[in-house]
Design a protein around this nucleic acid. Sequence first.
DNA 1: CCAAAAGTGTTGGTCGTACACCCATGC
DNA 2: GCATGGGTGTACGACCAACACTTTTGG
Lengths: 234, 234
Amino acid sequence: MHLELERDRLYVTVDALILTVREGRLYALLSRRKNPPFQGRWALPGRLVGLDEPVEATLDGLLAEMMPEGPRFYEQLYTFSDLNRDPRGRVISIAHLVAVPEAPSGGLTSFEIRLEGDALSLIAPGGGSLPGGELAFDHGGILATGVQRLRGKIDYTDIAFHFLTRPDCFSLGQLQSIFEAVLSCPVDPSNFRRMVKSRYEEPGFIAPLDASTVSPRGRGRPAAMYRVIPKNER
Amino acid sequence: MHLELERDRLYVTVDALILTVREGRLYALLSRRKNPPFQGRWALPGRLVGLDEPVEATLDGLLAEMMPEGPRFYEQLYTFSDLNRDPRGRVISIAHLVAVPEAPSGGLTSFEIRLEGDALSLIAPGGGSLPGGELAFDHGGILATGVQRLRGKIDYTDIAFHFLTRPDCFSLGQLQSIFEAVLSCPVDPSNFRRMVKSRYEEPGFIAPLDASTVSPRGRGRPAAMYRVIPKNER
DNA sequence: CCAAAAGTGTTGGTCGTACACCCATGC
DNA sequence: GCATGGGTGTACGACCAACACTTTTGG
């Protein structure tokens, strides 16, 4: 993205809003811009779409560069096309929402997403707060759109499971903390179990693991573990 | 769209999936292509996005050409970017979902949308059936995506009201027939009224009209009329 | 011309499901 | 201390029944 753009051309980019959940909190993965415009500001990872390149290939390449490899999920979020969203010229961005299990990776920095009233703000790893509007380009708007979409879709899709570090072995408590992080409000454990049973276990999307194979070291009663049934077994 | 496209450039277009409801049935408005590619096939109205033109301006211009003027509603649907979706070159289309009150207009032809099982087919005005896959480009996929989106959003948004010919004077029966057309299944009148009351009337989105000012000539008991409260009065 | 039938709008009830909220028990 | 399960009350949709008001039909 540090190339010169021609003024009489229209460009299409892919921007990735990479979200992850850790310890009951929702994070966005951002990178600091090394070149103008918005040099030094935080931004979503993005890349130009090549003329003969599928958008998915552009995104895959971008994610492979950022994340070391491993499971990830994405879906198209929204296409941002404001005339002046990029001072270099006409750049239309197809923003994607990416859900990854954890963020141990790449040159990206994870910012906690917090909802102050109805506006959201970012908490830097050090602890400093960063208003959403401080991001490069219109990325603050992309962030808001993505979080809103995620919150709206979490309870009638299976997005939440893509945040699990081990989809083959997880407890309902872990899953619940993902829901709580995304919705940013506590969830009743009793209703949550009933919901998971009826919506995911009975349809055969997840299944309980053998009770003997589990060993969740921690305080309190050990949790029963579940696994996501792979698509080819369903 | 009958211009020559340069091979080494990337183009962005806007396609409009214009939907309308008439007599309890859902219609899509299509135009027959006069030029290659896909000459003679039915297609969604579309237009190239100019270099210095906001996408909304492109869409407004397209709709102004197609519809004589009047209320319309649109929202971005999805961006289609397959490499070979347009044989002339790399053309990425930002598809939009448009809801209009009726279709008395333009050079467009209205096809009834029917759901055969889970695939949908189009019924020409003459009565002939047209599989969704017979449309030009990937417009069959755009149609399917749009209908699915509309069905998913109709009962937690106010899209349905944009299909009303007279938002300032409508009956609950008319509104119900819009829901039935979109969902393509009958709706219980009793529950429908309760839903409308709690979701739209009590929040002040619609209000009953004075009983004396109504005169719905027809068989059966005259219906109470309602109006959508304009945004500046809410 | 009048009364009955048919058609549409409107209101009410029951039943089962699902969720909010609370509490008890197992490890 | 955390996981698990049960219980109650409320909200909402599926389904059903009745009533209100109008036009149409048939003597």
